[in-house]
């Protein structure tokens, strides 16, 4: 489904990603963990080319990511993305946030798009908020709306870039619940997160990154119980000690 080979990305003199390989099978949930600055968000943002890679190949469903333009827009429509800062369109109601792309990109009728949108909002538990503006919702509700907005495009895969990092602690659970349901329904997911509980319970595979490289990859049980690299052991000692 997603195939990454030799991915390279620099920001000025800083190398953010170095020779990264990654494969995500259809229906697989891959959780990417690692210390801040390890390149995991950059990797996630390269997968739909919000960051332009400096080298390497990314294939989605066998097709190489095209240059910026219509073809890339079409491909992005099939890959949902959820951001740390929600990024709901501030000037539109929650319902309009969900219908904009299905109407403009998929060519759905307004009625059909609204019907789908309301279904999705019910599914993530915020059906009553449809007519409100994003700023009138709590962070957890906004992030659930953002997930619903991505799902409204009926994507083949979903990317999550630290979806709970900007949330108050009491709202993390409601967002992770929605993501867990999504994983159970068989969605292909790449999740960059610091939520180790989620990684352990929901991931099919954990990818550990440090200094722009994939250091270790394995099942959650293998990674959390018997990490093979020093950097992973060091990381786990820090995040699991409290």
């Amino acid at each position: 489904m997603i195939e990454v080979r030799g991915l390279h990305k620099r920001f000025g003199a800083h190398t953010a990603l170095h020779e990264v390989d990654l494969d995500v099978a259809r229906g697989e949930v891959v959780v990417v963990v690692g210390p801040s600055g390890s390149g995991k968000s950059t990797l996630c943002r390269c997968l739909n080319r919000l960051e332009t890679p400096d080298g390497g190949v990314i294939r989605i469903d066998g097709a190489e990511l095209p240059e910026e333009g219509r073809a890339l827009a079409r491909l992005r429509a099939d890959v949902g993305m959820v951001f740390q800062s929600f990024n709901l369109f501030q000037h539109k109601t929650i319902l309009d946030n969900l219908t904009l792309a299905p109407v403009r990109v998929r060519g759905l009728s307004k009625d059909e798009a609204e019907r789908n949108a309301r279904e999705l909002l019910d599914r993530v538990g915020i059906g009553a908020q449809a007519e409100k503006l994003p700023a009138q919702l709590s962070g957890g509700q906004q992030q659930r709306a953002a997930i619903a907005r991505a799902l409204a495009m009926r994507p083949k895969a979903m990317l999550f870039d630290e979806p709970t990092s900007a949330l108050d602690p009491e709202m993390v659970g409601e967002v992770l619940d929605v993501m867990t349901d999504l994983a159970r329904d068989g969605m292909t997911m790449v999740v960059v997160t610091h939520e180790m509980g989620f990684a352990r319970q929901v991931a099919d595979r954990v990818v550990f990154m440090a200094d722009g490289e994939v250091v270790e990859t394995g099942t959650p049980a293998a990674f959390f119980d018997s990490p093979t690299s020093d950097r992973a052991r060091d990381f786990l000692a820090k995040v699991l000690s409290h």
Binding site: N48, L50, E68, G69, R70, A73, R74, L75, R76, A77, D78, V79, G80, M81, F83, S85, N87, L88, F89, Q90, L100, A101, R104, V105, A146, R149, A150, M153
Partner: peptide, 21 residues
């Protein structure tokens, strides 16, 4: 905020659409 345009493009809107809408 840059995230607004990014979210629009991530949904499959072209650059022109994300600017206009």
């Amino acid at each position: 905020p840059a995230g607004q345009g990014e979210a629009a493009r991530a949904l499959g809107l072209t650059f022109t659409q994300s600017l206009r809408l």
